[in-house]
Amino acid sequence: MPQLIKVGMADLNIALYPNILTTIGLGSCVGIALYDKINKIGGLAHIMLPSSKDIKNNSNKAKFADTAIEILLTMMLENKADKKNIVCKLAGGAQMFALKNSSGNNDILNIGIRNVAAVKKVLEELKIPVIAEDTGGNFGRTIELYTEDGGLMVKTIGHGTKII
């Protein structure tokens, strides 16, 4: 029986075949699913913020796009994944609330868009291709990464379920 490995908010983990990685209720956060299809190794990070460099208290590496991807990749390589096989799928980065007359300097509400952009920039630097994504919008997502084939299931409330 495959084991379901849960990744929390500002958290990351890897899984070997046949296990499944999941993270529940992504809002503006981004779920970064890395997968090596030859060795059937998956990695999943649930990041909250674009960059560890903008924040003083940055000891939790899994919280930021830049540091989380780096650690996740290292963990996968340590478990015999091969960098040249690794591809990425993304989900999340929504804007949960849209205020009409906000004070205008509310950078928090569009953090989802900025998270997705930051993640893609880091992946590009690492030369990891993004082969599928379900990002943006104004709704939450739960995702499951299957190490069997690298499929990423995206579940929502009211916006359907699909595998990307």
């Binding site: 908010m9 529940i24 209720g25 992504l26 809002g27 956060c29 909250m48 949960m96 939450g140």
Partner: peptide, 13 residues
């Protein structure tokens, strides 16, 4: 109205 995790991610962030 959405998943608790997604709504609560707003203050969490």
């Amino acid at each position: 109205i959405d998943m608790a995790g997604a709504i609560l991610s707003v203050p969490a962030v």
